[in-house]
Design a binder for these strands. Structure first.
Lengths: 200, 200
DNA sequence: GTCTATACGCCGATAGAC
DNA sequence: GTCTATCGGCGTATAGAC
């Protein structure tokens, strides 16, 4: 093992620590209430200058988080589209994924669902035009074509379905629904699906 | 007409202008991206000092908006509970109200639905514990008792119903659903109601 | 290449002249 | 009571010492 590699590893580790710290603080207190000093403390690095070794500025940290999260989601959806065939199954897998995330990594779900990215990221696309959501919309369209989903504007179907799903996750994340996410999963799924399912 | 009264009137007018300007800017750019200089310009008052004549500080402006909006909503819901009897009718009226607001005063709806109040207001209750939402929850409970709504935890019913409604309004506010709110009203209502209605 | 020390702009808030 | 002028502090970002 050469030292060059170790150094690279260490560098990437502190980067991750900074990103994790920032994610926690941003979701906790908000982007603007989080100073670099806060991030420094939470990440366990010595000075704020260390942060500038890894990121151009504070906004770049948020950008990195944003792209990382959307990209991971996009990949997961690709996997789902590859392994499940029926649109209904694909949607169900996506819902499973989201409830799982809300439980294992609530910060990520919070960042995704509740933060106003445009407030601190410049030139950020509306979330509906990002890759993962365009893919979900395509699944909805296939569902309509395959007559699993009733004939309806795809955007409306998306709105209703994820209205139920996201709001359920929302209420779990803020603690109003006070049990863990998976307790609400199957009921939320049935309800969400029924808003768009073709009646037999 | 005595001058004392005119002065009072003028004072209250500039207060309203400041509040309106702040509401527009807060929803537009976010609370933290809005400086008092911005509010001064938008409100058409000469200096930032003028603002301090009417409000203790910037946060007090946001607080006033928050309480004003929640209070108006609460009153409207009281009216609805007085004039409509069946819980389903009451909910329908609330939905009408919200879609109307989204069309006539989208800033208010945006402030209510999309802003993270806790980020800039200290000691703000979770929105579900505020008066209007407790009233809505009571309506849901009556609906269950009256067997209009299926037997379900009231909080879940609230979550599903307003999942559909709020997400629809959300998508209209950000322009993803690109027609005016009322176009989506009746369909959203049917869908939302079906998530909780007792099947006959 | 790591940290100390500091620069500097921005903005909220105020004091005091008129 | 209206506005000018300014303060003070925070927080980002950098420069430069070791």
């Amino acid at each position: 093992m050469d030292t060059e590699k170790e150094k690279e590893q260490k560098k990437s580790e502190t980067q991750d620590e900074i990103l994790l710290a920032a994610l926690k603080l941003f979701t906790d207190k908000g982007y603007f209430n989080t100073s670099l000093a806060d991030i420094k403390d939470e990440a366990g690095v010595k000075t704020t200058s260390t942060i500038y070794q890894h990121f151009k500025n504070k906004q770049a940290i948020a950008e990195e988080l944003y792209h990382y999260i959307l990209n991971s989601l996009s990949c997961s959806i690709d996997d789902i589209r590859r392994t499940s065939k029926k649109p209904s199954e694909q949607l169900r897998e996506i819902v499973n994924l989201m409830f799982g995330l809300a439980e294992e990594a609530p910060d990520i779900m919070y960042f995704l669902l509740k933060m106003n990215h445009a407030e601190f990221l410049t030139d950020v696309k509306p979330i509906m035009e990002t890759a993962p959501f365009e893919k979900i919309l395509k699944i909805v369209q296939s569902g309509i074509k395959a007559k699993e989903i009733r004939s309806i504007e795809p955007l409306k179907a998306y709105t209703y379905f994820f209205g139920v799903i996201n709001h359920t996750l929302d209420m779990v994340l803020i603690g109003t629904l006070d049990k863990s996410a998976d307790v609400y999963l199957s009921d939320a799924w049935v309800t969400a699906w029924n808003t768009i399912a073709k009646k037999m």
